[in-house]
Protein backbone atom coordinates (compact mmCIF):
# COMPACT_ATOMS: atom_id res chain seq x y z
CA UNK A 1 0.00 0.00 0.00
CA UNK A 2 2.84 2.61 0.80
CA UNK A 3 4.11 3.54 -2.61
CA UNK A 4 7.49 5.14 -3.11
CA UNK A 5 7.40 8.50 -4.74
CA UNK A 6 10.32 10.09 -6.56
CA UNK A 7 9.32 13.66 -6.05
CA UNK A 8 7.19 15.91 -3.96
CA UNK A 9 5.17 16.70 -7.03
CA UNK A 10 4.27 13.05 -7.46
CA UNK A 11 3.13 12.90 -3.86
CA UNK A 12 0.93 15.94 -4.36
CA UNK A 13 -0.43 14.44 -7.54
CA UNK A 14 -1.34 11.25 -5.72
CA UNK A 15 -3.07 13.33 -3.03
CA UNK A 16 -5.10 15.05 -5.71
CA UNK A 17 -6.03 11.67 -7.16
CA UNK A 18 -7.10 10.41 -3.77
CA UNK A 19 -9.25 13.47 -3.32
CA UNK A 20 -10.92 12.87 -6.67
CA UNK A 21 -11.41 9.17 -6.03
CA UNK A 22 -12.84 9.86 -2.60
CA UNK A 23 -15.31 12.31 -4.05
CA UNK A 24 -16.50 9.91 -6.70
CA UNK A 25 -19.62 7.94 -5.83
CA UNK A 26 -18.25 4.79 -7.36
CA UNK A 27 -15.79 4.12 -4.58
CA UNK A 28 -17.28 1.97 -1.85
CA UNK A 29 -16.99 2.63 1.84
CA UNK A 30 -14.23 0.06 2.37
CA UNK A 31 -12.09 1.62 -0.33
CA UNK A 32 -12.93 5.09 0.86
CA UNK A 33 -11.57 4.23 4.27
CA UNK A 34 -8.39 2.89 2.72
CA UNK A 35 -8.04 5.98 0.53
CA UNK A 36 -8.66 8.22 3.48
CA UNK A 37 -5.96 6.50 5.47
CA UNK A 38 -3.52 6.72 2.57
CA UNK A 39 -4.38 10.37 2.01
CA UNK A 40 -3.86 11.43 5.60
CA UNK A 41 -0.61 9.49 5.84
CA UNK A 42 0.68 10.93 2.59
CA UNK A 43 -0.24 14.51 3.38
CA UNK A 44 1.49 14.22 6.74
CA UNK A 45 4.55 12.79 5.03
CA UNK A 46 4.48 15.71 2.59
CA UNK A 47 4.31 18.27 5.36
CA UNK A 48 7.14 16.55 7.22
CA UNK A 49 9.26 16.49 4.09
CA UNK A 50 8.72 20.20 3.55
CA UNK A 51 9.44 21.13 7.12
CA UNK A 52 12.61 19.11 7.37
CA UNK A 53 14.10 19.84 3.96
CA UNK A 54 17.18 21.93 3.31
CA UNK A 55 18.19 23.38 -0.02
CA UNK A 56 20.88 21.34 -1.71
CA UNK A 57 23.47 23.14 -3.78
CA UNK A 58 25.61 21.41 -6.35
CA UNK A 59 28.04 22.90 -8.77
CA UNK A 60 28.24 22.00 -12.41
CA UNK A 61 31.89 22.28 -13.41
CA UNK A 62 32.58 24.14 -16.59
CA UNK A 63 33.28 21.72 -19.35
CA UNK A 64 36.82 22.06 -20.66
CA UNK A 65 35.94 22.19 -24.33
CA UNK A 66 34.40 25.63 -24.16
Amino acid sequence: MQKKFNSFEEMLKRLQEISEELESDEVGLDNSLKLYEEGIKLSKACAKKLEEAEVKITELKKSLES
Binding site: K49, E54, V55, K56, T58, E59, L60, K62, S63, S66
Partner: peptide
Protein backbone atom coordinates in the same frame (compact mmCIF):
# COMPACT_ATOMS: atom_id res chain seq x y z
CA UNK B 1 10.87 25.51 -1.20
CA UNK B 2 13.74 23.83 0.64
CA UNK B 3 13.10 20.58 -1.21
CA UNK B 4 14.75 22.00 -4.30
CA UNK B 5 18.27 21.32 -5.47
CA UNK B 6 20.11 24.25 -7.03
CA UNK B 7 22.63 23.35 -9.68
CA UNK B 8 24.93 26.31 -10.24
CA UNK B 9 26.89 26.55 -13.44
CA UNK B 10 29.30 29.40 -12.62
CA UNK B 11 29.63 31.86 -15.47
CA UNK B 12 31.14 35.21 -16.22
CA UNK B 13 28.29 37.67 -16.46
CA UNK B 14 30.14 40.70 -17.79
CA UNK B 15 33.19 41.66 -19.76
CA UNK B 16 35.10 39.54 -22.22
CA UNK B 17 33.74 36.13 -23.02
CA UNK B 18 30.69 36.56 -20.82
CA UNK B 19 28.17 35.89 -23.59
CA UNK B 20 30.06 32.77 -24.70
CA UNK B 21 30.27 31.51 -21.13
CA UNK B 22 26.55 32.00 -20.62
CA UNK B 23 25.91 30.17 -23.88
CA UNK B 24 27.96 27.14 -22.83
CA UNK B 25 26.33 27.24 -19.41
CA UNK B 26 22.91 26.88 -21.04
CA UNK B 27 24.21 24.11 -23.29
CA UNK B 28 25.76 22.16 -20.42
CA UNK B 29 22.68 22.43 -18.23
Amino acid sequence: YPLVELVIRPARVQGEGAAEDIVSGIQEL
